[in-house]
Write a protein that binds this DNA or RNA. Structure first.
Lengths: 154, 154
DNA sequence: TATCATGCAATATATGATGTTACATGAAAC
DNA sequence: GTTTCATGTAACATCATATATTGCATGATA
């Protein structure tokens, strides 16, 4: 089962944006993330609509953070991505006529619903600012400096 | 993100097996589940190794439950399937050099780990017997009778 | 007006689950 | 014993879909 890395990717991009002094182009981000600029734009589209980032065309354009990092939780980012499916487990049939399958689905859904609530609550409790703090702590601990180009070069 | 329906499918099959009087062939199950006999055998392989079901070759052969339903939890079945990935969310990079990505991964993993614990505990608390009880309650409530062939005909 | 950057649709590629075929093994029926 | 039935498994085919790419339109700056 292939896993969806969009949330991970977007958070990564956002934190790098937060570190940058000016706007960063899709191309620069794409190079750093080893992917295509269009993929970056697709990822960011939801965040732009949600007002978390701002994009500018033309010379000197690119992407920039539009909100205080402390005001955006992982849950917000997740929602801005369209609240993608959290679980890899699914049902064989969504609306089964078979009563056995209904019972199975009900049991699984019950557990999944609770886990989903827990997970989203956790996401809601973590802000981008908190991630940034953690990142800076790691930077101090490692003694390394960082910038988008050099860190993602290797 | 495509979802893995193996757990759902196996549970469905197991409960039907429990209702059956004698061994059920892969072909019969496959017809009921609208899939291929080989797929059924693949699903059941882990359960056979775990000792939850028994298979017999030749005339009158097929699959049968080998354990008391009360002694098998959803967690056991999940493990017998090889403990497949629970979450659709993953990391962009598993062992990133980038400290930003490390911080992101750590935050996500933290939340996911707790959700996983909750989910597996829930699975551990539900036995096949409980599912069977629920199924019979549904059958009474609906007034319908059931058997493998007729229920899955349409 | 030439260049740079996003916006977006359409298409291509890659990956992995699911489905299928083929054949070997073993058990029961005849 | 030989025929039939069923599982066991590997190899292969298909299909779904996430990801990547291409192409072109739009708008902003030099």
């Amino acid at each position: 089962m292939k896993r969806d890395s969009r949330l991970s990717g977007v958070l990564h991009v956002l934190l790098h944006l937060a570190e940058a002094s000016g706007p960063v182009t899709s191309e620069a981000m794409a190079k750093a993330m080893q992917t295509n600029p269009v993929v970056i734009r697709r990822l960011m589209a939801g965040l732009r609509e949600a007002g978390f980032v701002h994009s500018e065309k033309g010379h000197g354009g690119g992407w920039a953070i539009a909100r205080d990092l402390a005001s955006v939780s992982l849950r917000d980012v997740y929602d801005a991505l369209g609240a993608p499916e959290l679980f890899a487990l699914g049902h064989r049939t969504e609306a089964p006529g078979c009563l056995v399958e209904q019972a199975v689905n009900a049991a699984l859904d019950d557990a999944l619903r609770d886990a989903e609530t827990l997970l989203l609550d956790r996401f809601g409790a973590v802000t981008l600012a908190a991630l940034s703090v953690d990142f800076h702590a790691r930077m101090v601990a490692s003694g390394k400096s960082i910038d988008l180009e050099t860190v993602h070069a290797g």
